[in-house]
């Protein structure tokens, strides 16, 4: 709001709304962290004591460690492929005018709007037909589909800030296309590529529906949580949650710091100019 103007409702109202939303977003996370250190089996406000026994239990659980290894493998490979594909598509959209460009863009933005249950179902049917259902490769193939649009969006946003004439200017000075790309476009886009890698890693690491449908016996961490959720109250979920929160929150916050710092100029132009 321009400084000389008043808000329609007092500032306190809007700030209270902000506080409420952040409470809703972070209360479940904080409570999971809190109860992961509780000595009690049943989480309640009257905690009898502090304990790390649930951590010990999770970290010695072979099934859980295997799930962790599966999750890291899937997320790592997914992030590599999704980032590469996402960058390529973002660069293509930035650099070239080609037939069907809008169609490609629409196709790339479609996967996040299709319910994961339906994607999981369709992919399970497809992977069974081609005989890779129940493998981690199937999970990766599917995760790339849902993660690549995020990578593309992050890279495309960054490329939008690159003066389009720079690459042609480099060619005009004698640079071949690949060398103009490597010397002009890549250095500029590198932070976004890193952010895309972290975000796609987090998307894959946290995805449970498709992994559950197509992963078969190869459980990932979220699938393990889902299975536990269907059973009895289990305090180890809080431990797994705390560990996953620390991993994904760190990744995502680093990624966001990178992305937001670049686009900071664009977002706040009207006030800082």
């Amino acid at each position: 709001m321009p400084p000389h103007l008043k808000h329609a409702l007092p500032k306190a109202f809007w700030v209270a709304g902000l506080a409420l939303v952040f409470l809703l977003l972070y209360a479940p996370i904080l409570s999971a962290v809190l109860f992961s250190f509780s000595a009690d089996r049943f989480p309640s406000l009257s905690m009898s004591g502090f304990s790390t026994k649930w951590y010990a239990q999770v970290l010695t659980d072979r099934a859980m460690l295997e799930a962790l290894s599966n999750s890291l493998t899937v997320a790592g490979i997914t992030a590599l492929i999704a980032t590469a594909l996402g960058f390529a598509a973002a660069y293509a959209d930035y650099r070239f005018r080609f037939f069907g460009q809008k169609a490609v863009l629409a196709l790339a933005l479609l996967p996040p709007t299709v319910p994961l249950v339906i994607l999981g179902l369709a992919m399970l049917a497809f992977f069974s037909r081609i005989g890779i259902a129940g493998t981690l490769a199937a999970v990766v193939a599917a995760h790339v589909v849902i993660a690549a649009p995020f990578a593309m969006a992050v890279c495309r946003l960054r490329l939008a800030q690159l003066d389009e004439t720079l690459e042609t200017a480099a060619q005009n000075l004698g640079a071949l296309p690949h060398s103009a790309l490597a010397r002009i476009v890549l250095p500029h886009t590198l932070p976004a590529i890193l952010a895309a890698f972290l975000i796609t890693f987090a998307v894959s690491f946290d995805e449970y529906v498709i992994s559950w449908f197509t992963g078969g016996l190869n459980q990932t961490i979220p699938v393990a949580v889902l299975t536990t959720l269907q059973g009895q109250v289990d305090p180890t979920i809080h431990v797994i949650g705390t560990l996953s929160f620390s991993v994904t929150l760190t990744l995502v916050l680093i990624a966001l710091a990178v992305v937001l710092r670049q686009s900071g100029g664009a977002m706040s132009k009207e006030e800082t100019s």
Binding site: I29, A32, D206, L226, H238, G241, V252, L256
Partner: peptide, 18 residues
Amino acid sequence: LGLAIAPFFTSYLVRIYS
């Protein structure tokens, strides 16, 4: 904004359990 979007990528299942 960073803090608002971060939970979107973090352990939805555990938050539901919470």
